[in-house]
Design a protein around this nucleic acid. Structure first.
Lengths: 202, 202
DNA sequence: GAACCATGTTGACAGTGCCTACATAGCGTG
DNA sequence: CACGCTATGTAGGCACTGTCAACATGGTTC
């Protein structure tokens, strides 16, 4: 059979070649030509499946977001307590970032995908985790999306700082800081200490 | 006089040309050759002052960190209340990022500067703000560096998410989430709700 | 003034993204 | 079945990039 002229599913093959490249040779080595070569096609072939480099990157990012989503899902499986569940969710996030540093850089690189379904699903998990805690009266009432954004910012920021080598042990640090953030999210029995009603401070 | 063969302070001129370029034409337009041309010098001249592209980027980042530091300093000037001061500090951070998006991307881009004096100073401001609040018994005791890292992660994460267009109004959002985070940092009068002693949760 | 050397220039090389022109083959339609 | 149409591949070229080596210039020092 040798190599058929037409590949069959080159698009998929290119994405996987790109993923392999990014995992092995790092974030900056991702060139269209290198990807094409790895997939065993000519340097212009990718243009039949992607508009350009940015679109291939976006596809790689989307694929990676799916991995992130899976990591978060696995981390919370079977955890019922709202606080513990939320911590586990963040842990799953941070873990994925630390274990797939180059992919994480592609996901949030200079060309982030405009509309990523998987990315939205990841954020949705955070929102639902907040709402779950609110329903159980473990977290204070308030705009669950905003509180989820706060959680996202924390895990995202920690992951990036860790990837930049600015932290010692990002995983351990998150366990502490995640709980600390949740102390602010917890429902407060003493009304003199702050929240009255269902709004966030200020 | 025309143009003297030797520039005088080409290193400085290159950094400033790079800054202008990055501000005007954006983050990705930063090429050594473009910078050289803007400085009115041949394409290989920069190599007499920088080891390569990465080092020039690092210099631009360092310069930008100095701007960030200035923004943070200006934001807290004359603010005494620990909570308000800490919020203002974060505000100064977020504001700088939102007002200098391209520079912020260089600062935390794929090639972050290894040892940035200004970056350390920025972080130091956060640590001291925490310690200041602890001394005044406004914030709970605990590892001030860790708590500062939590604050950094929040502002850094929010800034990046805002720059990626994933937030509506990052500035406003920070005011709310910053206060929310501080609720977790506040000293808690009711010992039944959590912290005992001088350690962070978990 | 002569030698030195930091600083600039020129030219080249491999690699990049992207484009156009051409080749191949799988498909539907007569 | 044969014909063409079109999707998908290739080959080559363009302008640009970072980097290096060889050369030019001119300020500084003995």
């Amino acid at each position: 059979m040798s190599k058929p002229y037409h590949h069959g599913d080159l698009r998929r093959a290119l994405i996987e070649a790109a993923l392999e490249l990014v995992v092995e040779s790092g974030y900056e080595a991702l060139s269209l030509r290198a990807v094409a070569q790895r997939a065993g096609v000519s340097h212009a072939a990718p243009y039949r499946h992607f508009e350009g480099k940015a679109e291939l990157w976006a596809a790689v990012a989307e694929e990676s977001f799916r991995g992130l989503l899976a990591s978060m899902r696995a981390a919370v499986e079977g955890v019922d307590d709202p606080t513990e569940r939320h911590i586990q969710l963040g842990q799953g996030y941070v873990d994925y970032g630390l274990e797939h540093p180059h992919q994480y850089r592609v996901m949030f690189g200079p060309t982030p995908p405009e509309d990523s379904e998987a990315a939205r699903a990841c954020f949705q998990m955070l929102v639902e985790s907040i709402q779950y805690g609110q329903k159980r009266r473990a977290f204070r009432p308030g705009d669950s999306m905003e509180m989820a954004l706060g959680a996202w910012a924390l895990v995202h920021g920690l992951t990036l700082l860790a990837l930049d080598g600015r932290l010692q042990d990002g995983r351990q640090l998150f366990r502490r800081l995640g709980r600390l953030q949740l102390e602010g999210y917890h429902a407060q029995e003493d009304p003199s200490r702050g929240y009255k009603g269902d709004t966030l401070p200020d």
